[in-house]
Simulated assay, not measured.
Amino acid sequence: METGARPVAPKRLDWLHDETARWVGEGLLTEHTAERIKAQYVASHTSSLTRVISYLGGAFLGVGLVWLVATNLDALSPLVRFAGIVVIWLAFTAAAEVPTLPGPLRGAFRGIAALGFGGVIFQAAQSLQVPAYEPSLVGLWGLGALLYAYASAGVAPLVVGIVTTMIWFDWQVVASSESTFAGVFAVLVGGVIATATAALHDRGREAFARVWRLAGGVLVLGGLFVAAIPQVGDRELAWSPTLVVALVIAALLAAVAVGRTRGWSRWEVLASALIVPIGLALVAWDPQVSDLGSVSGEAWLSAFVSIAVYVVVAGAVAIDGSVRDHTLLVVLATGALVVFTTMQSFAVFAPIMSGATLFLMLGVLLLATGFVFDRARRGVAANLSEALS
């Protein structure tokens, strides 16, 4: 390793070597200059490994602290419990901002602080005799974690904030409306909010954009997954104030994102908005699958349409992840497609064919789907970003 060489991810270094070779070929650089540029960097996995170890350590430490407090609740007075969790929260919040702290440890400490804030909320509620199973407590936790994430520019608190906020949102909608239909609607609307927010973060907060985009993929694919289940539950939409407010926020964010972005980001937002009515139509379509021993033609059609919709949406998410070099998004889409196809096949097709035949058909379907998506991914990754920019 050259003295003072900067460690970078191997993929990034490969890209640099390819680009410098192209620049030399075009006469933009000399061979000597290209070699001097490449000598400034060295491939290293150490940073990624350190980050993974630090985040795992932070996760285990956070869970261990919660577990330790939970197993000793009876031995501590409410005031001592509250003071203890507040001290832990403040200690990790302060420690995360120490200037000399390595980056991975700073991220882990911020994540623990965001988790600790949830402990403060629930412990304060218990001291005030507020019921523990109250969605508003999770909402306060999520709001605090999101504010902390943006104040500290921390990705770990952002993950905590997004997860807890979406749990609160769907819980609140279902609890207030008592409607499965409304719950699916809420998840899909959350997907629009997350995708639009990701698009607005593409310039200036790229790390936040990746997290919001992954959240959007999870919500869109999760909402469609539930929407396509034949026995999803009630099929009448019951409105609630929370859902109406969220729908207005989603519409405003989508409009702003479409107006302020262009190219691939704009199409992402429009696609996420289009999926909402499609998902609601799947929920409203009741194929009347009451007897698993006799599957009607409508149930067959419903299953085929649901699978086709899910294949298209999962493929779009996978292509999006490929174009943006977002590996988690590709893994999410692939895994969701496999699980959904298997579930849907057992739910509708299994009663009329043997298990061996079912798995053979699934294997052929998934291999064909994988081949088509790989061909599409290669073409889109090579041409689409430039064409839409």
Rank of each mutant, 00 (worst) to 15 (best):
G217T: 08
L274Q: 02
R235H: 10
A271W: 04
T242D: 09
G279R: 01
E236H: 08
G183R: 05
V184K: 03
A199L: 02
L188W: 11
L200R: 03
A182S: 14
S176N: 12
G183L: 06
F225N: 13
V248R: 03
R235G: 10
L280R: 07
V192G: 02
I229D: 11
S296Q: 04
A207M: 04
W264L: 15
R210W: 11
T180A: 13
L252W: 05
A186K: 00
A198W: 03
A194V: 02
W239T: 14
Q231M: 10
L188I: 03
V174S: 10
V245D: 07
T242P: 05
L282H: 09
S240Q: 02
L282F: 05
A271N: 04
E236W: 06
V218F: 14
P230Q: 11
L282W: 00
Q231N: 14
S177P: 11
A250M: 11
R213K: 11
S240M: 07
T261Y: 10
A238F: 01
S176G: 12
Q288D: 13
H201P: 00
T242G: 14
Q231W: 14
V295Q: 05
R260T: 01
S296I: 03
A257S: 10
G293E: 09
V220Y: 04
V189M: 12
P241A: 08
E268Y: 09
A251T: 14
I278K: 02
L224R: 07
A199Q: 02
V269A: 00
G183I: 06
G259R: 06
A186Q: 09
G233L: 14
R210T: 10
A182V: 04
V256C: 06
G217R: 05
